[in-house]
């Protein structure tokens, strides 16, 4: 590789970094605009309800399957790692902790990001390229207030709720596997579950899921609102919304975990 190539390479990387920073800036601005539109929202209850159904209720089947199997796998894997070193009465403790703190919130968020993030971006992106968002503005309705705010609020309400649901199912899945294929008695499992159980762990998990709800809906709205160029553009917006949500969920998970479990809860 000669110097010229290196220059071009460096230039491209520099440009990418600048674009990335610009993107972060414009996402933040968008988020502020949505937040500012929240107070005037009280008249639009039915919109919120519709979105709560679309984001929460309709995600239930997917979350149900994911959670049960995740719980089951967690039990199998934990038992394998315990082998003869750790007594099986700690199985419930390990499952309980990991589900409530980490697996429930994060897996639910990732699954919902794929389903809901994509559908928000596709719907709003289609509305953008078919000028429906412009049409809303011409009849004097703020698209932010009418489209983005209900999705944001619904995400913030429903994500913690389905995370609770997912926590129960995952622990249930682990319990069934423990009982049927790992020879752990009901009493032993429940005992373990109770042993190190802290309500604040559940609370920490739900705080995380609330933020994930914000991330998923805002990424869907942002990329949908900014879609351009027909069907292809809508497809691109959808992919970007899902990729950005998943990345942000994982990054935010680390940051929130550090904050909650190393600063606030100690």
């Amino acid at each position: 590789m000669n110097a010229n190539h290196a220059m071009i390479g460096a230039h491209t990387i520099g440009q990418r970094v600048l674009e990335g920073i610009e993107q972060v800036g414009s996402v933040s601005l968008f988020f502020m605009r949505v937040l500012r539109a929240v107070p005037g929202f009280w008249r639009k209850g039915h919109l919120l309800f519709e979105q709560m159904v679309a984001i929460g209720v309709e995600s239930i089947p997917l979350v149900l399957v994911t959670s049960i199997f995740t719980g089951g796998v967690a039990a199998v894997q934990a038992a394998y790692q315990f082998q003869d070193y750790v007594p099986m009465r700690y199985l419930g403790s390990v499952i309980g902790k990991s589900v409530v703190i980490e697996l429930g919130p994060v897996l639910t968020a990732l699954v919902v990001a794929g389903r809901v993030g994509a559908s928000i971006a596709a719907e709003l992106g289609t509305m953008r390229v078919t000028e429906q968002i412009d049409a809303l503005e011409t009849i004097g309705i703020s698209p932010i207030r009418f489209l983005a705010v209900p999705r944001l609020l619904a995400g913030m309400i429903m994500l913690p709720l389905i995370t609770v649901f997912s926590d129960f199912l995952a622990i249930g899945g682990a319990y069934v596997v423990a009982l049927l294929s790992l020879d752990v008695a009901t009493n032993t499992f429940m005992e373990g579950l109770r042993l190190f159980f802290h309500l604040r762990d559940v609370f920490g998990g739900l705080v995380k899921s609330l933020f994930f709800g914000v991330v998923i809906t805002m990424m869907g709205c942002y990329f949908g609102f900014n879609a351009e160029g027909g069907a292809e553009g809508v497809g691109r917006a959808t992919t970007r919304a899902v990729v950005a949500s998943c990345l942000l969920i994982l990054i935010l998970d680390y940051m929130l975990a550090s904050l909650l479990f190393r600063v606030i809860f100690v």
């Binding site: 078919t130 000028e131 429906q132 412009d134 049409a135 011409t138």
Partner: peptide, 9 residues
């Protein structure tokens, strides 16, 4: 405003 592509919701 009447849009080129109708832009119905």
């Amino acid at each position: 405003m009447v849009f080129q592509g109708a832009a119905l919701f």
